[in-house]
Amino acid sequence: MQEKRSRKEQRRDRQQHYEELESRHDAKALERFKRPAYQSVSVAEYLAKKYDITAEVDTGGQGHFD
């Protein structure tokens, strides 16, 4: 019958396991992780780019009706 491992042994094994996980990594994954974050754009800019609108889009809020 096996004896239970002590808390110190369990902790040491757990730390060793996490250290092994941190030391092994894929080069491609590391490269992808370093890419720039998403750039925020306004809705009007996004739509202009998506639908290839070359005219200036009014971003002033409510439209002016006469």
Rank of each mutant, 00 (worst) to 15 (best):
Glu56Gln: 15
Arg11Asp: 02
Tyr46Ala: 11
Glu45Phe: 02
Val57Tyr: 08
Gln62Thr: 08
Ala27Cys: 12
His17Cys: 02
Phe33Ile: 05
Arg12Ser: 05
Ser40Ile: 10
Met1Glu: 12
Ala48Glu: 01
Lys49Leu: 08
Tyr18Ser: 04
Gln39Thr: 14
Ser23Trp: 08
Gln10Phe: 14
Ile53Glu: 05
Glu3Met: 13
Thr54Lys: 15
Leu21Glu: 11
Arg11Trp: 03
Ile53Met: 05
Asp13Cys: 04
Met1Trp: 04
Gly60Asp: 04
Lys49Asn: 14
Ser42Trp: 06
Tyr38Met: 11
Arg5His: 05
Lys4Ser: 10
Arg35Gly: 04
Glu9Asn: 03
Asp52Ala: 09
Gln62Arg: 07
Asp52Ser: 11
Arg35Lys: 14
Gln10Ala: 09
Asp52Arg: 05
Gln2Gly: 14
Ser42Glu: 03
Glu22Met: 13
Ala44Asp: 07
Pro36Gln: 10
Asp66Trp: 00
Tyr18Arg: 13
Val43Pro: 00
Val57Ser: 11
Glu56Pro: 00
Arg7Tyr: 14
Ile53His: 03
Tyr38Val: 08
Ala44Gly: 07
Pro36Cys: 01
Ser42Pro: 01
Tyr46Val: 04
Glu22Phe: 10
Ala44Phe: 02
Lys34Gln: 14
Tyr51Cys: 06
Phe65Ser: 07
Lys50Ser: 07
Ser40Glu: 12
Arg24His: 14
Phe65Arg: 04
Lys28Asp: 09
His25Phe: 12
Pro36Trp: 02
Arg35Glu: 13
Tyr46Thr: 06
Ser6Tyr: 03
Asp58Ala: 06
His64Glu: 00
Arg24Asp: 14
Ser23Gln: 13
Arg14Val: 01
Asp66Ala: 01
Ala44Asn: 07
Tyr38Gln: 12
